[in-house]
């Protein structure tokens, strides 16, 4: 534990004694058994209801099905990536307003953050889907999903970034100022690069939420994974099978993103450990 890399989790973790280990093992066994029984019940229910019949799953033997889902996945990834970029840009600007020395700028920043955080994503989507066309603006479906999803996440990202900026030790700023660096340089070259390291895990979590929010694409009929899944369901009448497969795909992608987040956090901890001895 004397390792310099000791992180907060290790610091809060007390190695269990023999009795705790026995209790933990018993609880794990009982939980696993319980989950097994539940899963068996679910599968049995499906079998009884005929959901496991080959006819519902036959569509997955066709290449066209996978091609179609693949196209949907590309749509999802494109929308999520674009929404992620816009979210970050908007979040950054709102964060700059929030930490400004000007009271008016701070007020505007706070209002934007509260507005974007407070309104449900679906409401923003309806705005772009129903109101924007009425204003005479023709917008491709891609933007009708990415913009509202991005706006909805931007306030949270602004707050995540702000907490990162606040987490950078005051001395970093002072050292940069003492070299004669201007405020903008101090922020862009010293404070923000460190702040972003603090919040990479939270930012990636937010990207997962953005990716999941793109499933609202069906509202604006943008062909993402979810929308294409719905089309498959209505063509083949196999609701459960398609939803199960699509869920697995979403879980897999988000799992990869979360692994990326862990990896980034580990790398950061290696670089930012403060050693004073």
């Amino acid at each position: 534990m004397s390792d310099a890399r000791t992180n907060v989790r290790d610091a809060l973790y007390e190695p269990p004694g023999p009795r705790t280990r026995r209790i933990t093992a018993a609880a794990t066994g009982i939980s696993l058994a319980g989950i097994g029984v539940l899963a068996a019940l679910v599968v049995r229910r499906f079998a009884v209801a005929g959901q496991l019949d080959a006819k519902y799953w036959a569509l997955f033997t066709k290449g066209t099905t996978w091609l179609y889902l693949g196209k949907g996945l590309v749509g999802t990834l494109r929308a999520a990536a674009m929404a992620g970029v816009i979210t970050f840009a908007m979040g950054f600007l709102m964060m700059i307003l929030r930490i400004s020395r000007l009271r008016a700028a701070r007020a505007v920043g706070t209002a934007l953050v509260e507005f974007t955080r407070g309104v449900p994503t679906l409401l923003f989507i309806y705005f772009f889907f129903l109101v924007v066309p009425q204003l005479g603006v023709a917008m491709p479906a891609f933007w009708k999903i990415t913009l509202p999803v991005a706006i909805s996440a931007s306030g949270i990202v602004a707050e995540v970034l702000r907490s990162g900026v606040n987490a950078v030790p005051k001395g970093q700023r002072e050292a940069a100022l003492s070299l004669g660096m201007r405020e903008s340089s101090v922020f862009l070259k010293v404070v923000f690069p460190q702040a972003i390291r603090f919040c990479i895990p939270a930012l990636i979590s937010e990207l997962v939420i953005v990716l999941k929010d793109t499933t609202f694409a069906y509202v604006v009929t943008f062909p993402d994974l979810m929308q294409n899944a719905k089309v498959l369901i209505s063509n083949y009448d196999s609701l459960l099978a398609v939803y199960l497969v699509v869920a697995v795909i979403y879980i897999f992608i988000n799992y990869l993103l979360n692994r990326l987040s862990d990896f980034a956090a580990k790398r950061r901890d290696r670089g930012l450990v403060v050693k004073t001895g």
């Binding site: 050292a175 070299l179 390291r197 670089g271």
Partner: peptide
């Protein structure tokens, strides 16, 4: 510009950790 002409060494070093 003035700060650029007067160096400062801090108790907590304050090296840019990144």
């Amino acid at each position: 510009q003035l700060r650029a002409q007067v160096g400062m060494v801090f108790q907590s070093f304050n090296l840019f950790s990144h």
